[in-house]
């Protein structure tokens, strides 16, 4: 192909009209990463949530899409989920100090996904804890996550090194700085999903086992095990629940909604395979009106088709 300079110039001038699809990329080339401005909101005595954007990971939101939480203790702040990048983790640490009056002294990473795990880079590895399965998953996937996050988030990721949590968390009761909480070692959203129940306030931090008014994501999901984990959480008495994504919940609505979506998703995809639909068609399925409040629903449905469809075809299409 030979492009003259004149072609390039006229092409560029005509671009807004001719190539609307290119415009976002060009716009992005002009935009620099901003700075994270997380805000803490008290949801109980000595417990704060930091809400993520209920959206896909985008350059516009710096990947700050997951919820985090602070627990105040006499030994320092416990941070549940350190965010997506070095700058994000650092901003959360600063906010924690300002909010609780104490430095972050312990970090829990709920599961391996980068929006929850990669901000661990901002902390001393000795204080960052996770389930053994989370560490193993990160050992396997974190380089790919890192590539993907740098590609999507560019400068927001600046300086973010791969930081592995200690895979030393076991289920049970823990007392730290005078605060007692129960750790639950579950799985289903991923190979290892940590949940935390704060005894003093009855606050349940679920990580991505629970989504609320934001469609669940399934890249490492085992739907059967996820449902069992939801049953465990449901059976656990709690007063308030902070999901991995979406607003906090005081009833059982968020758990039920997550379960409802997973059930619908699985049924819908199985029916799509048995009625002969292609992946594209399965991703275009009508989303029931009861899920109208779920953000990123179409986006997550299309992702889930990608994650789950080949396996369902291998199960449901007859061997020839």
């Amino acid at each position: 192909m030979i492009l003259s300079r004149r072609h390039v110039v006229t092409g560029a001038m005509a671009l807004p009209a001719l190539a609307p699809a290119l415009a976002p990329a060009l716009a992005r080339a002009e935009v620099f990463a901003g700075s994270y401005a997380p805000r803490a909101e008290a949801i109980g005595d000595g417990v704060w949530m930091v809400r993520g954007a209920d959206a896909p990971i985008l350059f516009e939101n710096g990947g700050a899409i997951a919820n985090s939480a602070f627990l105040a203790t006499d030994a320092g702040t416990v941070l549940f989920d350190p965010g997506v990048s070095l700058a994000h983790g650092t901003a959360l640490a600063t906010l924690a100090r300002r909010t609780t009056g104490r430095e972050v002294a312990r970090v829990y990473v709920s599961h391996l996904h980068p929006d929850h795990a990669m901000g661990a880079a901002a902390f001393d590895p000795a204080i960052v804890h996770a389930l053994p399965a989370t560490r193993e998953g990160l050992l396997r996937d974190v380089e790919g996550f890192s590539d993907a996050m740098y590609r999507l988030l560019a400068d927001w990721m600046k300086g973010t090194q791969i930081a592995l949590p200690r895979g030393d968390v076991t289920a049970g009761e823990v007392t730290f700085g005078g605060r007692t909480f129960q750790l639950l070692a579950l799985d289903g959203h991923s190979g290892g999903d940590l949940a935390l129940l704060d005894h003093a306030t009855g606050t349940l931090l679920t990580g991505d086992l629970v989504f609320h008014d934001r469609a669940p994501s399934t890249p490492h999901a085992d739907l059967g095990r996820w449902r069992r984990a939801l049953e465990t959480l449901q059976a656990l008495p709690h007063r308030k629940l902070l999901p991995g994504h979406g607003p906090p919940d005081t009833g059982a609505g968020a758990i039920a909604q997550t379960r409802d979506w997973l059930d619908w998703l699985e049924t819908s995809l199985r029916e799509a395979v048995t009625s002969g639909l292609s992946m594209v068609e399965a991703g275009r399925a009508a989303i029931p009106p009861r899920f109208a409040s779920l953000k990123a629903a179409r986006y997550e449905l299309e992702r889930s088709v990608s994650h789950l469809y080949p396996g369902l075809e291998a199960e449901l299409l007859p061997a020839l």
Binding site: P219, M279, V280, E302, R303, S306, H307
Partner: peptide
Amino acid sequence: LAIPGIAENQRVFPVM
């Protein structure tokens, strides 16, 4: 031409 809005897996991208 129908494709998903996101290339979730660049090795397996559905096209219809």
